[in-house]
Amino acid sequence: MIAPRRFLPSIPSLLALEAVDRLGSASAAAEDLSLTQSAISRQLKQLEEQMGVDLIARDQMRMQLTPAGTGFAKEARAILTRLAQASVKLRANPDGGSFTLSILPSFGLHWLAPRLREFAAAHPGITVNLHTHNLPFSFDAGTAQAAIHYGTRDWPGVAYLPLMPKHVLPVCAPGLMAGPVSAPADLLDYPLLHLETHPDCWEQWFHLHDVPAAKLRGMLFDQSSAMTQGAVHGLGVALLPDFLAENEIAQGRLALAMEGAAVRLGEYFLVWPADQAEEYPLIKFREWLLSQLGEV
């Protein structure tokens, strides 16, 4: 339900408030918005009268916002940004068939992206906009309507669609070792590569193999793609998702550091806020994902 009209300020007044907060003066705000300083002052005065709150500290030589004005400007900036983004999406997709999906780089680019052509062919009226993110991730901080999440069901306020377990394989450059090691503990003799977003992956892996290992050291990477390149160039052994590792092995860029089945570490989910559950593009995307999972 939308609030009564008296609580809804005009867009010009919000733009004036945001510009003064961002630029620090009425003259700069006026130039930014192609208005006069008097027009800026008039918009702010109307906003104060409508809200019944002082937004301008008038005892200052320069126009400055009160703490209440600064806080309101921050909220206005977020709302105006989302409105602008929604307008861009509407112009690009006049049928209303679009949504933004925030993806983990490795899963999104190597598993999901190659399959999206099929979704686009089946649903030509729906556009999926992709943004990449690393953990942690919050819907409050962006404009995504859904996201690919890795880990456990520990994200409050969202709905989950389980996608697949994350299975990892230890891999390295073919020249790093003479051949795959025969025992998990043998990998402790080699440099291990770590990912910032999952810094305990190696410890989990060794624990599942009943090998005591704690406070493991090694090079740290912020992206799976960077860690993959590090492994390719012989910097150490990396734990990569099986769909990524198998592709690199097939191309001869990487090799198994130890024979054996992939180990499960967590799970991939599609997650979305409860208030987005009935959005048509998201419904069709979930249905399509379920059909893809039947083929995995």
Rank of each mutant, 00 (worst) to 15 (best):
D154P: 04
R82S: 09
A78S: 14
I103S: 06
F221Y: 15
G151D: 00
Q276K: 12
R58Y: 14
A245S: 05
A214S: 14
G151C: 00
D32N: 14
L293M: 11
A255W: 03
R58T: 15
D32C: 14
V181N: 02
Q145W: 01
A92W: 04
G175H: 13
L187Y: 03
K215F: 10
P174D: 03
R286T: 02
L270T: 02
P94I: 01
S38K: 12
L44A: 10
A245W: 05
G96T: 00
Q229H: 10
V168N: 03
V237I: 15
M258V: 04
A19H: 09
D210P: 02
A120T: 14
V271L: 05
A262H: 02
A261M: 12
R253D: 00
A84C: 10
A178S: 13
S102A: 08
V53R: 10
G236T: 05
R77W: 01
E48K: 09
S106D: 13
F269M: 01
A28G: 11
E118R: 03
D95W: 11
R91H: 13
D189S: 15
I40L: 09
K74P: 03
R42A: 15
Y160P: 11
Q251E: 08
L169M: 06
A57Q: 12
K45N: 14
D189C: 12
F72S: 03
T70L: 10
A113D: 04
L195E: 01
L176K: 04
D189Y: 09
P94K: 03
A159E: 07
P273M: 04
H167T: 11
L116Q: 00
A173D: 13
P191G: 11
K166Y: 00
I40T: 09
P212K: 02
R22Q: 09
L208R: 12
G266I: 05
H149C: 03
P94V: 01
P199H: 10
L176D: 06
V271K: 03
M61K: 13
H209F: 00
V181D: 03
T70Q: 13
G71V: 07
E196F: 10
S102R: 01
Q43E: 15
G24A: 06
E267C: 09
F269H: 08
F107M: 00
P4M: 06
I249N: 00
L240I: 00
L293Q: 08
S291V: 04
A261K: 14
L8A: 09
E75H: 11
T132M: 08
P184G: 02
R153G: 06
A274E: 13
L293T: 01
I2V: 15
S106F: 07
E196T: 15
M1R: 00
G108M: 08
S291L: 06
L193M: 12
H198Q: 10
W202C: 02
M227K: 09
A28H: 08
A39H: 12
F285K: 08
L101I: 01
R117T: 06
E287G: 05
S182V: 12
I283A: 05
H198T: 14
T81G: 07
R115E: 05
Q229V: 07
W272M: 02
L289Q: 08
V232S: 02
P199A: 12
M219R: 11
M164W: 01
L244E: 03
L135G: 07
